Amino acid sequence: HNGKLCKLKGIAPLQLGKCNITGWLLGNPECDSLLPARSWSYIVETPNSENGACYPGDLIDYEELREQLSSVSSLERFEIFPKESSWPNHTFNGVTVSCSHRGKSSFYRNLLWLTKKGDSYPKLTNSYVNNKGKEVLVLWGVHHPSSSDEQQSLYSNGNAYVSVASSNYNRRFTPEIAARPKVRDQHGRMNYYWTLLEPGDTIIFEATGNLIAPWYAFALSRGFESGIITSNASMHECNTKCQTPQGAINSNLPFQNIHPVTIGECPKYVRSTKLRMVTGLRNIPSIQYRGLFGAIAGFIEGGWTGMIDGWYGYHHQNEQGSGYAADQKSTQNAINGITNKVNSVIEKMNTQFTAVGKEFNNLEKRMENLNKKVDDGFLDIWTYNAELLVLLENERTLDFHDLNVKNLYEKVKSQLKNNAKEIGNGCFEFYHKCDNECMESVRNGTYDYPKYSEESKLNREKIDGVKLESMGVYQILAIYSTVASSLVLLVSLGAISFWMCSNGSLQCRICI
């Protein structure tokens, strides 16, 4: 991952900044910058967002509201009850120091605090018919004063009620008058409520006091790749198909172990950190130390980045220098085999997901714990399936590479015959000098055995068991695999060879 928040398929997220979902939807004055928000790819909250409900109280069923919003990608904020005409018999300019803005008392931008007009609070009834052709999110509140005197001074009615009804919602609220500790300079409380109004449905408000009335509502448009994440990451000019709280993932790998919460087309989250597919040879310690064997393909974004291909070729060293050249036929066979294998694994496992966190309130801790156990169970199954699949494929890959290298080895052996000696570690020792032209003939299969047989015969008789390297004779190393990324691999195959001279070296080696 890149540690950044990015656009998702070209669409920017909605960053709530210092506000949370509650503050944004109710219209906390400190969240005025969010009022123009219309569309987004996903919503970003920060872990310690401080601006929620400015007048103390709870947004009821907040967790369910977050779940609903996680599939919303755009909205239209509109005046559901026009301020100047909807409440002619009531005062609608209630403000509070708890919702101060720029040093002055204020109130929510989407709600109206209705109080008595003169000395009376006549029963009010108002309704709205949803003609938007889509779901409408309606929010309101109920004020709970701290004393009967406060109730009387604001609403005149000691036994007030609030009723809200639609086809799918029907509740009646009565204020709970009680002494409470002071929070944000208030002994009173406000509880906030919401409902989704279906197209064509009607919502009716009736009250004799204590109503925090809707002013603006939201017509919602769903987008199934949307979601809500909690993150401290910063926004950058970048684009992605998959976003996590820790950063964007741009990967076609089937798995990731970065974060379980994802938005967009994302690899499946697994616990494993070692889900690797081999593309090189079986481990040979001396070669492995030099980083030549054991190439791997990573299938977990965050564990290993991208696929690494092994390729086969020849390396030689003689009086004229040293050089490398790919054996294109065996390399292409290996590439085709690995590509098919990788595609097979991805096809089997690479279903892209959006995974969002589930919200539970403080009273639902047991449910949250149960949900976590269920999620953990599914996660263990996914991890096991992934590891088992790759384990089985790896064994076949190792066998496949062994065969490829063996074929190259036999190709060289059949040409050199007794003009060189096998020394048991995949290397041959020449009994004759071999210049670049000679080396090329070994690589392309045109090695002239009779041409060098007499010199080889004489050297075999002279050496008589002495280690060949100390006599200045020449080696050919018969097994060799270097490691390159897919891009470098293609470039390498396009070149005939490249040279690395070893000044004054008397050794001649050709490596497979």
Rank of each mutant, 00 (worst) to 15 (best):
G310P: 00
P450F: 12
N250K: 12
A233E: 02
G465S: 12
G472Y: 09
K462D: 11
N385V: 06
N239Q: 11
S485F: 02
A484K: 02
I463C: 00
T383I: 06
K268M: 04
N343T: 12
V473M: 13
F378V: 05
N361E: 01
N257P: 07
D309Y: 09
Q288H: 15
G504K: 10
K358R: 02
T339G: 06
C508Q: 10
I463W: 00
W382C: 10
I300P: 02
E359G: 04
K329V: 12
G337R: 15
S344I: 00
L489H: 05
T240M: 12
M471F: 07
V270D: 01
Y409F: 15
K457Q: 08
V342M: 12
L398Y: 07
M367A: 08
K451C: 04
I296L: 13
L490V: 13
E319Q: 04
D402A: 13
N252L: 15
S485R: 04
N350Q: 14
A495V: 04
K341T: 07
G302R: 11
G313M: 05
L379D: 05
F428T: 04
T279D: 04
N407K: 15
I463E: 08
K348Y: 01
G247M: 09
E265C: 04
V270Y: 01
G494A: 14
L403H: 14
K417M: 09
K329E: 13
R396Q: 10
V374M: 11
E410F: 09
G337V: 10
V356R: 14
G247D: 03
A478Y: 03
V491D: 03
S286L: 09
F299W: 11
V356L: 12
G424D: 09
E455L: 15
A233T: 12
I381V: 15
G472R: 08
G310S: 08
D448L: 06
L391V: 12
G472H: 12
K467R: 13
E410S: 13
D435C: 08
N232F: 10
C501L: 13
E347D: 13
F255A: 09
R366G: 14
M307V: 03
T244I: 01
E461W: 06
V488R: 02
G291I: 01
C438M: 15
